[in-house]
Computed example of a mutant assay.
Amino acid sequence: MKAITQRILGGPEVLETEEVDIPRPGPGEVLVRVAATSLNAADWKLRSGVVTKLGPPPFTLGFDVSGVVTGIGSGVSEFAPGDEVFGNVVSRNGAYAEYVVTPRDFLAHKPAVLDHVHAAALPTAALTAWQALTEVQAGQRVLVHAAAGGVGHLAVQIAKERGAYVIGTARTANHDFLRGLGADELIDYTTTDFTMAVGDIDLAFDLVGDDYSERSLGVLAPHGRVVDAQGEEPLDDPRYHRHYFTPSGADLSEVAALVAAGRLRGEIDRVMSLADIAEAHKLSESGRVRGKIVLTPWT
């Protein structure tokens, strides 16, 4: 099968297409024929060495998958060959490939209302937002930074689903899009300092990094908190929490129920082939993507 690998850390040019063996599922694992995967910021951070959680190359990136089950390991009863599934892959052999193996607990049945392209856009981004906002209560004020991005636009919807008043930071060009998702108030970060525009925030969700978490501490309500999904250097403040998503088929099933009910939708910026992976990484790294970039296998 084909897979995207890299032998060294570096820019998008280090990503290469190679022929490798189709993996075999072990106990508790599922083999999926990849119909689509999607790009997350973690992908280019790992590729370049900004993040080192996968260890040194070689490895294959790709945390999201939507596809069809083609094999199961011993002990798997939740899925059978032919099932359409979506979920996460967290290993050195990721979903930038024609086939991938992942634990059964990382998968859920794909909602029938979604095609594989739209399903592949959800797992990492939706779980990041879902789990980060789990304590949000009706009437609270939630500030979402980078609200039009892959995680941000889902966070806006999930916070609204939980009854929050949602404020987002995004370029003016994305304001109508975000209002359509339920955002109550929007700030153009290119022209306005959000610290001068909002206050009494119960939860600030940082999807930017840099100094956004530190600055967000200044706009919190007395019992407010900052949840940071981007920063590489955690802050020493009891109101600050560094958030990492946890792969969970159970949580994805709840996300799928919202999608099936028409109460959550993922935005696709564009669909590209894995043959164009370097260009896709350049686009993702530019920070000018609305929603997600989805990748389909070679054609």
Rank of each mutant, 00 (worst) to 15 (best):
L9E: 02
L15Y: 02
E19S: 14
P27S: 07
G28S: 09
R33T: 07
R33V: 04
A35P: 02
A36D: 08
N40H: 01
D43C: 00
K45H: 10
L46T: 05
G49Q: 08
T52V: 08
T52A: 07
G55A: 11
T60E: 08
F63E: 09
S66K: 01
V68F: 05
T70C: 09
I72S: 07
S77A: 12
E78H: 14
G82A: 14
E84R: 15
F86P: 02
V90K: 09
S91T: 07
N93V: 02
A95R: 06
Y99T: 01
V101L: 06
V101H: 09
P103M: 10
R104C: 07
A108H: 13
K110S: 05
A112I: 15
D115T: 01
V117W: 05
A121D: 05
P123C: 05
T124K: 00
A125N: 12
T128Y: 02
A129R: 10
W130R: 11
L133K: 08
V136P: 00
Q140Y: 13
A148R: 12
G149L: 13
G150D: 12
V151D: 06
L154E: 12
G163M: 07
G163D: 05
T169K: 02
N174W: 08
N174R: 13
L181I: 10
E185W: 11
T190D: 03
T191M: 06
A197N: 04
I201K: 00
L203F: 01
F205R: 12
L207R: 03
G209C: 09
Y212V: 15
L217V: 04
L220P: 15
R225L: 03
V226Q: 06
A229H: 11
E232F: 10
P234H: 05
H241G: 00
T246M: 06
P247C: 06
A250Y: 07
D251N: 03
E254A: 14
E254R: 15
A257N: 10
G266P: 09
I268S: 01
R270K: 11
S273C: 07
L274R: 09
A275N: 09
L283K: 14
S284C: 11
G291S: 04
L295Q: 08
P297T: 10
